[in-house]
Amino acid sequence: MTAEAPRPFDTASAGASAPASPVRLVIVSAGVSEPSSTRLLADRTAQKAIDLLSDAGVPASVGVIELGPLAVDIAQAIVSGYPGERLQTEIERLAAADAVIASTPVYKAGISGLFKSFADVLDNDLLIATPVILAATAGSARHAMVVDEQMRPLFAFLRAMPTPTSLFAAPEDWGSSALGDRIERAATELVLLLRSGVGTAIAESAWAEYQHQFAGNASRAERAASDVDFNTDLMRLAAGGSALAS
């Protein structure tokens, strides 16, 4: 026993051995002003997560996907059905993320249409079992439930793993230490999810059970015959089998 009081959440000793390569955190921010409080909330959260990971001896990197500059690409992808090169690059970066911090402003009592449109062009299996912190900013505390009522179902559809704590910041929150506490709590949850390896374990053991897109953008997407499971009802039917069998 050391004299030091135990940390409220012992993220440093949780989970198995630290991953060899740096953990990739990716921020998705739909903030559009400069500077943007939506981005600021994500940055503070990412910093806290990095600090906690660093305490545990886990190196981490943070990438940022700013949706504002991609607005036209996202709209084009919606109407054409396919992302252009620039957007494709960002989607691939998101697909490679070990954890995501998703941050959006609230407009007209809902998440930014830009954020939703970006989510709409993602493959359904892009973020399966990926730990995510949900965050939103708004001009009034009356929008506080938007994160849990709109972002949480969206990420549930994507089969991502949102942390129990979501973040919301109205103007008055920026002067309150309670926001910092909530950021720490959410970051702690994210780091614990990440370090437990549960996301990877879920994706590894249950990947075939989700709906997938052949040659899609998900990091585990089937890209060639060697990745494909031929032991399915449909594949047996494709090879002259019967849909009635078994």
Binding site: Q213, F214, E222, V228, F230, L234, M235, A238, A239
Partner: peptide, 11 residues
């Protein structure tokens, strides 16, 4: 988009 269809063609 469907590998099963390509599989049937190949079969």
């Amino acid at each position: 988009r469907t590998p099963e269809i390509a599989e049937q063609a190949a079969f």
